[in-house]
């Protein structure tokens, strides 16, 4: 009489409503593309000033991070992200949102153990694995340089 676990899992997997992949993907493409094109626009705009090229290259992500952080603070980033999905997640805007949002939430636990400690609960893995893999690349690159 008991529910068979295997059959039940299969039943649930079969009936669970799926995410609208086509719609989501289209939204992600448009929004992600728009953010990248906007970044390109910023680059062109900053390029018109007398700033050196390296500074311009750094100012673009800095501006995007600022805008993402501000819209997170204003409470509109999550509304947009609900529609855009990976379109806001994958650009550096998603990184900024992932830094700001946990810090805002945990402000009630204090500036040190709340804001300070929780800032990287979501974005931390990206930095950890990014730095790890780049360090690994650095070692291999160095070995190649030395040996070859």
């Amino acid at each position: 009489m008991d529910i068979n676990e295997k059959e039940y899992k299969k039943y649930c997997a079969g009936r669970a409503k799926k995410s609208p992949v086509f719609k989501d993907t289209f939204a992600a493409f448009i929004c992600g593309g728009a953010i990248c094109a906007f970044a390109e626009g910023l680059k062109a705009l900053y390029g018109m000033t007398s700033l050196p090229e390296d500074t311009v290259k750094m100012l673009v992500p800095v501006t995007l991070v600022f805008l993402a952080a501000l819209s997170t603070g204003l409470g509109v980033f999550d509304d947009f992200a609900k529609f855009a999905g990976a379109g806001t997640l994958v650009p550096i805007t998603g990184f900024a949102n992932a830094v700001v949002s946990p810090a805002m939430d945990d402000k009630s636990e204090g500036l040190i153990m709340g804001v300070g400690a929780k800032m990287f609960t979501i974005a931390g893995p990206v930095i950890v694995y990014g730095v790890l893999s780049s360090a690994l690349y650095g070692v291999i690159y160095w070995l190649c340089e030395v040996l070859l």
């Binding site: 995410s19 999550d78 806001t88 998603g94 949002s101 946990p102 939430d105 979501i122």
Partner: peptide, 13 residues
């Protein structure tokens, strides 16, 4: 789950 202002999507279930 996630922070209140985190930009994530909820699944239909």
């Amino acid at each position: 789950r996630f922070p209140l202002e985190y930009g994530g999507q909820r699944t239909p279930t």
